[in-house]
Design a protein around this nucleic acid. Structure first.
Lengths: 168, 168
DNA sequence: ATGACTGATTGCATATTCGCACTGGTTGCT
DNA sequence: AGCAACCAGTGCGAATATGCAATCAGTCAT
């Protein structure tokens, strides 16, 4: 585990890539953010892509070292860990929205998995801010509780699933 | 060279990551986009990060296969190739702007290399659209030629370099 | 013809990622 | 107490990706 690999350059895009520029890191954050998966096993088993447990453990470790997530003990289970997004990870919401939007427009996405991206893009900055506030409540213990964007996205997803299931 | 690796999922974020989710692809696009580097040697030698030639060749090949860039012969030299962004790559401009902005706010960027990101973020959607139009002229041969965002960014960069150099 | 330049390719050592089995410990049910 | 299910994470061998230097053949100006 070579902890200190030198930074390749001080370019903002490069530095962001040094944190998120691999096949899994952003997906872990996505599941934490949109899937509300907070435990190791939830992140491991319920994702579409099927990350391996050693890779997940490694990414959680790295994301923690980079201050993107934090880890806390779950009071209900001594061995359970709760992973939370930090503020800097929550501020990725607009980027997630735009990346999702770009992918939806240019790549062969599935309808079910892209309905959230469609809604989040259409919602624009107002919706992103509301979502970020919601994430601050869920992950940082911030007070308040207004609009639940997570519930809106989930409802839309389930509506598509139900509609498509009804065809058969 | 396994050409057809199965898609891991139809999620827009995952599919985008399957194209851009590595340490180099987005940097190659960045240099094409902001550095106006169009030839292999320019991309190879003038980047901050120092990509290896075999990696560059591989990424150019993959980006071409995914329709992110195109390749044309340079009339001035039979062995010279001109790489151009496609429309779908040009539409990454807003994402580049936001990723640059996030990196600038959260990571130890250098002043010289982040002034462009600062300007591009401050310019907002209006500037992004102007930049995309400019890229369409440069890379797709579109007619017209209004505002040159590239020149504005370059001027700001050089101003910072000059100002910092004057300190010594 | 020579030497610099072009977009690559090759060989080789190291680093990372992969799938999969497995560990040590905890919890809840009976 | 006994036991199955669950918990975060490790170990391992194989496959893949990367970094680095050398090299290639064609092109170009002199």
């Amino acid at each position: 585990m070579a902890e200190s690999h030198a930074l390749r350059s001080g370019c903002p895009i490069n530095l962001t890539l040094e944190i998120l520029g691999d096949r899994w890191s952003l997906l872990v954050l996505r599941d934490l953010m949109f899937g509300n998966r907070r435990h190791f096993r939830e992140l491991l088993g319920k994702s579409e892509e099927g990350i391996a447990s050693n890779i997940l453990a490694d990414r959680l470790k790295k994301l923690m070292a980079q201050g993107m997530i934090s880890r806390a003990d779950d009071p209900t289970h001594k061995q359970k860990a709760i992973y939370s997004l930090t503020e800097r990870a929550i501020q990725l919401v607009p980027i997630m929205a735009m990346v999702g939007g770009w992918g939806r427009r240019h790549l062969p996405v599935s309808e079910e998995l892209s309905i959230r991206a469609e809604l989040l893009e259409a919602g624009g900055p107002a919706m992103w801010e509301a979502f970020m506030d919601e994430l601050r409540v869920l992950h940082l213990g911030a007070p308040g509780g207004g609009r639940s964007v997570l519930a809106e996205l989930q409802a839309a997803y389930e509506a598509v699933v139900a509609r498509n299931a009804a065809r058969y």
